[in-house]
Amino acid sequence: MITLDNIHKAFGPNKVLQGVDLTIPKGESMVIIGGSGTGKSVTLKCILGLIQPDEGTITVDGQNAAKGDREAFLTRFGMLFQGGALFDSLPVWQNVSFRLLRGALKRPKSEAREIAIEKLRRVGLKPEVADLFPSELSGGMQKRVGLARAIAADPEIIFFDEPTTGLDPIMAGVINDLIREIVTEMGATAMTITHDMSSVRAIADHVAMLHDGRVQWTGPIAGLDTADDAHVQQFIHGRATGPIAAIR
């Protein structure tokens, strides 16, 4: 279980998070929605400790995330970055199995490569892609390699920052199914940021909407359509007018 308690974060005068409270139950899939620039990516980075919150506490299974052995803490996590963040000096398969080639989870090279190829297959990429470099891939392919890297070591907790952005509808469907599978079959806890409402419906157990630096609404996916919140309604129907300003 991950809990965020009163998280604040500002970049200079730009107050991004202003008291985020959120609980992600173990083994469930939480989807974060919200307008562009509301701090969804920043929230994920705060949990991982990549950004230090100015105020508030984050706990993972009751343990304060900011304290203790960071490297051991992070071995439980997998993260897909919004921009992919692939290592451009390494071929695709070494990107995917980065964690399996060094450190605590190290295993023989041939085995790491096999796992990489299997994970690539799961995100819909052919084995031939394994020996290419990230710069030789299309944007959507890079995204999927990033996804394969996030799940390579079978982490308990996985964060996906816009996993289906830039993918064709079929591939988006494949990825949605994959995320669902990882949660139901492997019992992982997932936190996904997405703007794609069909993804939200396919992936989520719970939904949280971020607005103005706070959690505007949160609840089970079944309650999303009937949510009594003008912000949520505007967002899920994609209306240009409503309480959320179009210029931010």
Partner: peptide, 21 residues
């Protein structure tokens, strides 16, 4: 230039999340 590009494209953050200092 190499490390700065890695920083700008979040590769440094990715390293950290992969338990690599």
């Amino acid at each position: 230039a190499e490390i700065a590009t890695m920083k700008v494209t979040e590769q440094i953050d990715a390293l950290v999340t992969l338990s690599t200092h």
